[in-house]
């Protein structure tokens, strides 16, 4: 996969479980296990990040590039007070003294909207609600004023009203600090509402990437298109029939050389089963990897053929034509 991120921008990476979203984040953060084989390059502000890893640079991750994880309870140390955990980051990376670090930790908690920060620094994670814990994790990630914050499903474990507050907070912090962000989520609504650009992953590849508006209004990859249609929308009347994606995501052990989505795709033609579609429009504002992109003449023709035959090249039965 290839993508670039501008300073101050928010990139969303969406996909289902097992699509490779979190592995991507971990690769960027140098958190993958030793058994992982990594190829390619990650450049951060002109520097080769993987060379930094080899050089054992300890003050890059956690300082310039930081990460917020899904479950705040497991990313906090349960037997250490919240303030100490934030202060630890400052003392280790920036060499702050104990007192200065605790003072800074209190300030950070205040910045991320934790009420009564002076009391909270002395509490343990289990004494806080899920929303507050996630704020503590965000405060830790922001402690060294990073240039890039990677948030891996930061609101999946919290309720909707809390989710809104956390996302509002990340948004305003990003704007205040000119920080870049990568937001990893399975929730298309979150990506649509919050990101400048969105990349859709399927079976370990980016299958489509563009500005958020283009991606949702003029999607090209049949997977993106199908995903958007399969979600119940709040403005639909109740009992509206949903348009599910048939089948399930592929196994990634020895995948066949073909488009990974072909077995579930209504557009699939013979060529989809013969080769992995190359990514079109690389470096442009809208890229996608599909032989027969949706909402194009090529795609319409493929779909019409399949509908006429009642079956796709991959053997998927199609009984009716989907209408938007």
């Amino acid at each position: 996969m290839t993508f670039t991120l501008e300073q101050g921008e928010m990139l969303g990476i969406v996909g289902e479980s097992g699509s490779g979203k979190s592995v991507t984040a971990k690769a960027l953060m140098n958190l993958l296990p030793r058994t992982a084989e990594i190829d390619g390059r990650v450049r951060f502000d002109g520097e080769d990040v993987r060379a930094l890893a080899a050089a054992g640079s300890r003050h890059f991750w956690g300082v310039r590039m930081t990460m917020v994880f899904q479950d705040p309870m497991t990313s906090l140390n349960p037997v250490k007070k919240c303030g100490e955990q934030i202060a630890e980051t400052l003392r280790y990376h920036l060499g702050h003294g104990r007192v200065a670090a605790m003072k800074a930790a209190t300030d950070l908690l205040e910045q991320v909207g934790v009420p009564e920060p002076g009391r909270r620094v002395n509490q343990y994670p289990h004494q806080l609600s899920g929303g507050l814990r996630q704020r503590v994790v965000i405060a830790m990630a922001l402690a060294c004023e990073p240039d890039l914050l990677i948030a891996d499903e930061p609101t999946t474990a919290v309720d909707v009203t809390v989710q809104k507050r956390i996302l509002d907070l990340l948004d305003s912090l990003r704007k205040e600090r000119g920080m870049s962000m990568i937001l990893i989520t399975h929730d298309l609504g979150v990506a649509r509402g919050r990101c400048d650009d969105v990349a859709v992953m399927y079976a370990g590849r980016i299958v489509e990437r563009s500005s958020t508006e283009t991606l949702f209004d003029r999607s090209r990859h049949p997977y993106t298109d199908a995903l958007v249609r399969s979600i119940p929308r709040i403005e639909q009347p109740s009992h509206a029939r949903l348009d599910p994606i048939p089948g399930r995501p592929p196994e990634l052990i020895d995948p066949p050389v073909q488009c990974a989505f072909a077995p579930r795709c209504r557009y699939a033609q013979a060529d989809c089963l013969e080769s992995v579609p190359p990514t079109e429009g690389v470096g442009e504002s809208h890229e996608f990897a599909c032989h027969h992109p949706a909402n194009t003449p090529r795609g319409r023709e493929a779909l019409a053929n399949n509908v006429a035959a009642g079956v796709t090249a991959a053997g998927l039965q199609i009984s009716y034509r989907k209408t938007r």
């Binding site: 399969s230 979600i231 995501p249």
Partner: peptide
Amino acid sequence: LDVSVQAQILN
């Protein structure tokens, strides 16, 4: 469940 499977179960 994943979003693509969610609609199958609801239907």
